[in-house]
Amino acid sequence: MHTITVIVPAHNEEEGLPATLESLASQTVPPDRVLVVDDASTDRTGEVAASHGVTVLRPPRNLGSKAKAQNYALPQCDTDLVLAVDADTVLAPDYIETVLPVFDDPGVSVAAGTVRTRHTRTLWERGRSTEYLFGFHWHRPIQARANSPMVCSGCCSVFRRDDLMAFGGFPERTIVEDMDYTWSQQIAGRRAVYVSDAVALAADPEDLTYLRKQVWRWMAGFCQNVRLHLGRLLLHKPLLAVWVLLALLEILTAPLWWATPFVITATTDQPPALAFLWWAGAELLLTTPPLIYAALRRKLPLTGVLLNIPCVYATKAVNLVYAWKALIVELLLVPLHLSRGLTVYEKGRADYRPAPAGGVS
């Protein structure tokens, strides 16, 4: 029988935290303990957490990143498993029950489920919802079948505590600790597992300001991990290296694909409208089948899922801008010692006051 402690890092999360803690209290297999790290909040985060009967830990100062907040709580964990949950993420009632069995395999070090968006109110949330549905019902299952998932999502990952402690805790050397740990454990010969039936609902960017900050953190963190791990991935986990290289290739070639209608118009006698229709048709052929499967798999209204497809191009445009910025900064300027790269963990909400995170190597 596995035991599990939940760590919830929280900075100024009084609004979203209650739903997170209520979802933990409603688990069909309840956690043994819930630790909320009130990371120097200036709102009522600590009071809200205490009112839910969980243990509240408050560092003497703002620690500056989610990984550091989680590491602050880690010495308080004496269970064999640790579940890290973001303070704005809601777990399905059977999340813990569904994930626990994979740890019967002693080779499994980390596991996480499917992430979906909690809200689809704005253009950006709808675009992110489409990205999640596509990624978790196309890319992630393929990677799982190959035993080489790209990342166990940090908003809802379960860790084997012994492995986590032996590694030195949640990694602070990059700006995205979830990808860093997922790659590191697979390089070391341990397993990372995607559990598709376990569902977590994350609060995603509702406006462009929040989205830009989140995407910059994600893209910079991806490139930091490429810089740190790619050589060892090629040697010790070549299939995972393939997914990483394909992701880099996609970033490099995306501008060419987006420019295709204009190239066709400029180099042939086809009218612009026809060139765009050809391009749009190819896009739909590639993206629609996984989205239809996702809608059926998750029992979502198919019409709503399909109507959200145009929104994804807004988020894709933001992704592309910051992916190229990350390539230039993290894979070119940092090795040339012309930049330190992204070292400040900034979630993006207006009330977040970031402090410098640990150095990135």
Score class of each variant (00 low, 15 high):
H2D: 01
H11V: 14
L17R: 07
P18E: 06
L21Q: 08
L24D: 06
S26A: 15
R33G: 03
D39W: 02
A50C: 03
H52R: 12
V56N: 07
G64C: 10
G64I: 09
A67G: 12
Q70T: 12
N71K: 06
D78R: 15
V82Y: 03
V85C: 08
Y95K: 12
E97G: 13
E97M: 11
P101Q: 10
P101Y: 10
V102R: 06
D104V: 03
D105H: 12
P106H: 13
A112C: 13
V115A: 04
R116G: 04
T117E: 12
W124Q: 05
E125L: 09
R126F: 02
Y132P: 01
L133M: 14
W138A: 15
R140M: 15
R140D: 07
Q143T: 07
Q143M: 14
N147R: 14
V151Y: 00
G154M: 02
C155H: 06
C155M: 07
V158C: 06
F159T: 00
E177W: 02
E177H: 08
M179H: 03
Y181I: 11
A188P: 09
V193G: 03
A198W: 02
A198E: 07
E206R: 04
T209D: 13
Y210Q: 11
L211M: 12
Q214P: 01
V215F: 09
W216S: 04
C223E: 09
C223L: 09
C223K: 04
Q224P: 10
V226Y: 07
R227D: 02
H229R: 06
L234C: 13
H236T: 02
K237R: 15
L240T: 07
E250H: 13
P255L: 06
T260D: 00
I264H: 00
T268E: 08
D269A: 13
Q270R: 09
P271R: 05
A280H: 00
A280Y: 01
L285A: 15
T288V: 15
L291F: 00
Y293S: 06
A294I: 10
R297C: 03
R298S: 01
K299F: 13
L302S: 06
L302A: 07
T303Q: 05
L306K: 07
I309Y: 10
V312P: 01
Y313F: 15
A314L: 14
T315M: 11
A317E: 03
V318K: 03
N319C: 04
W324I: 09
E330A: 11
P335S: 12
S339D: 15
Y345D: 11
G348V: 00
A350Q: 08
G358E: 14
